[in-house]
């Protein structure tokens, strides 16, 4: 911990400076989200050319570095003069890991395609879902409100899926792309100096990360880490092919995405409540066995130990107030 920095405001603090900084950061955030969205999607020509030409690596590193340099933002002006702030380079580190693992030649990209399908693709039984609802409690049928909430976000900002891309709205790539779009809108509004507009898109990014992206991305990262053996186990695996190396690409991507979203959660001062790990199928006897492991099949009506609890309350010196009125209200709330 360093000593608290003295308050040293910028020489001429004015709105224009602030806005150009916001615009710059937003553009790089937009680019990072967009690149992540592109990379997590089923590999196609766009990704292939970006990888082969090296543009993907180049842009990823550049944007990560810029954001690392500007760790401190709206929420925390103090750290600006904090020398340790610049030492945070975790986005760039993560981006570097991605770049190290990224396929660079056409042959590698081809193999990369099979890696993607083995992880996420239906054709080879890849079993890591890329949908938010698969990580949330409940089933698709009971989560339609989540879908409509997400769709409402897109709709509110005039965004819709391209006609030829049929996909459920809670898909990872669409959610990432949505944040990317909002970041771009932020940049455009900052250029125009539209403070109200900035506030709206900023709030929306915060809310979207808090209610959606931020809640499941960490679980998604774990699924890639654990599920598909990019950990130590996989390195020892005898069946060593390019696959191992390339799942590392997704592992690194997920780490980068998580760090970016975590940092944005701080930026927008939101605290996403990460979904609990999906529990394994509960045993049919769960809750019916006692500490000795004996099964107790008494049903709820027989009152197995479940007497109603009485509320504890503190005794107080009563105060008298004649004829207190029942709280009333109207459609705007209580009076």
């Amino acid at each position: 911990m360093t000593t608290p920095p003295t308050h040293d405001p910028p020489d001429h603090p004015n709105e224009a400076d602030g806005n150009s900084r916001i615009a710059r950061e937003s553009v790089h955030r937009a680019r990072l989200y967009k690149l992540l969205s592109l990379a997590f999607d089923r590999p196609g020509e766009t990704l292939e050319s970006a990888l082969v030409s090296g543009t993907f690596d180049e842009q990823l590193l550049e944007s990560a570095a810029v954001l690392d340099g500007a760790v401190t933002t709206v929420s925390d002006e103090r750290d600006k003069s904090d020398p340790t702030a610049d030492a945070h380079g975790d986005l760039h580190d993560a981006a570097k890991t991605v770049v190290d693992a990224s396929p660079a030649t056409e042959a590698e990209v081809d193999e990369h395609y099979s890696t993607w399908t083995s992880l996420f693709g239906f054709e080879t039984g890849g079993d890591i879902p890329q949908y938010e609802i698969e990580f949330s409690p409940g089933t698709l049928v009971t989560s339609t409100d989540t879908l409509s909430d997400i769709a409402g976000f897109y709709d509110a900002f005039g965004l819709s899926l391209a006609d030829d891309r049929r996909e459920r709205v809670d898909h990872l790539c669409i959610e990432l792309e949505f944040v990317s779009q909002l970041a771009l809108q932020t940049a455009a509004l900052a250029k125009k100096g539209d403070e109200t507009g900035i506030e709206i898109v900023t709030d929306a990014q915060g809310s979207f990360i808090e209610d959606h992206l931020g809640r499941w991305l960490p679980r998604y990262r774990e699924a890639i880490e654990d599920g598909e053996g990019v950990g130590e186990d996989a390195i020892d695996a005898t069946d060593e092919t390019a696959v191992d190396g390339e799942t590392a690409f997704y592992d690194a991507l997920a780490v980068l995405a998580c760090r970016l979203v975590e940092r944005d959660a701080d930026r927008f001062a939101v605290e996403p409540d990460v979904f609990a790990e999906t529990p394994a199928e509960p045993s049919p006897l769960e809750g019916l066995t006692n500490s000795e492991g004996d099964v107790d099949f008494r049903c709820g009506t027989c009152g197995s130990g479940a007497g109603p609890s009485s509320a504890s309350a503190t005794e107080r010196e009563p105060e008298s107030e004649p004829e207190p009125q029942l709280p009333m209200g109207n459609r705007d709330g209580p009076y």
Partner: peptide, 22 residues
């Protein structure tokens, strides 16, 4: 004596007969 007031610590309704289901 048990009149409702603005003090949350005063659980004026604690003697309304009832129970909290488990």
């Amino acid at each position: 004596e048990m009149a409702p007031d603005d003090d949350p610590q005063n659980l004026h309704g604690q003697d309304i007969e009832g129970y909290i289901p488990d």
